[in-house]
């Protein structure tokens, strides 16, 4: 066993971004299919997966990305002004705004568990990061992504693409387990999904107010996730 390494400081922002996008990231993320298993188990056809991913990107994924961008911006601002009070308020307001746009309790629950896993990893990587210490014990994943981006100096647009990519890649990886086909097709779906919201990236990245976080809910998707939480014989939590 190797000696415990002591510091992750000094990694380039892009490298941190690559690490966060890596499905091998040890933060417990492998239990999520980005809602795809709930959809397939509810009877959505295999021929609708492409459409599903496109809808998912411009609804849930952009909501997550918007929340992450607002957190990133707010924490960076607060850091410059050294105003701890306002960053606590921003965290609360953003969590609430995100939760209001994520009506399924099951979806919020899994986002909170994934967020906790990611925060656990991040605080081990950067034990001295003041920004990470401001988060609660189980913040939702988008909030943690935003905070890590602020700490690692990731650009806002990179963060938005990262959140959208992460969500799509999880669905594609799940697809290869649930209904395997040509793996290359799954990767095409990922790139196509990301490209479909490219024209929204700059706008979402520029968000600074929790109330401006995109709010296009996908009600059917949320309902599937809610239902999935009460089923057995599932491979993914959501």
């Amino acid at each position: 066993m190797l000696q415990s390494p002591t510091s992750a400081a000094g990694a380039a922002a892009q490298t941190v971004g690559l690490m966060l996008a890596d499905s091998r990231l040890p933060s417990g993320g492998h239990v999520s299919s980005s809602g795809l298993e709930p959809a397939l188990m509810a009877g959505m056809g295999r021929d609708q997966v492409e459409e599903y991913m496109l809808v998912r990107a411009r609804t849930a994924a952009l909501t997550d990305a918007g929340a992450a961008a607002v957190i990133r911006h707010g924490l960076l601002e607060a850091g410059q002004n050294e105003s701890g009070q306002s960053s606590a308020e921003l965290l609360t307001r953003t969590e609430r705004a995100w939760a209001a746009r994520t009506p399924s309790r099951a979806a919020r629950q899994i986002a909170s568990e994934l967020g906790r896993g990611l925060l656990r990893l991040a605080t081990s990587l950067w034990p001295d990061a003041a920004i990470l210490r401001q988060l609660g014990t189980a913040p939702s994943r988008p909030v943690v992504m935003g905070a890590v981006a602020a700490h690692a100096q990731l650009e806002a647009e990179e963060l938005v693409r990262l959140v959208v990519y992460d969500d799509a890649a999880a669905a594609a990886a799940a697809l290869l387990k649930l209904d395997p086909g040509d793996p290359a097709e799954a990767m095409i779906l990922v790139l196509q999904t990301c490209a479909s919201v490219e024209d929204r990236v700059a706008g979402v990245a520029a968000l600074t107010e929790p109330s401006d976080i995109p709010s296009s809910a996908a009600v059917q998707m949320e309902d599937w996730i809610e239902h999935h939480a009460h089923t057995t014989r599932r491979l993914f939590r959501a």
Partner: peptide, 20 residues
């Protein structure tokens, strides 16, 4: 805890959920 499609991952390469 649910280990999803990867029971060996959850006890070996990504033990996050079990540790928590």
């Amino acid at each position: 805890i649910e280990t999803g499609a990867c029971p060996h991952t959850a006890i070996r390469d990504d033990v996050t959920a079990n540790l928590m």
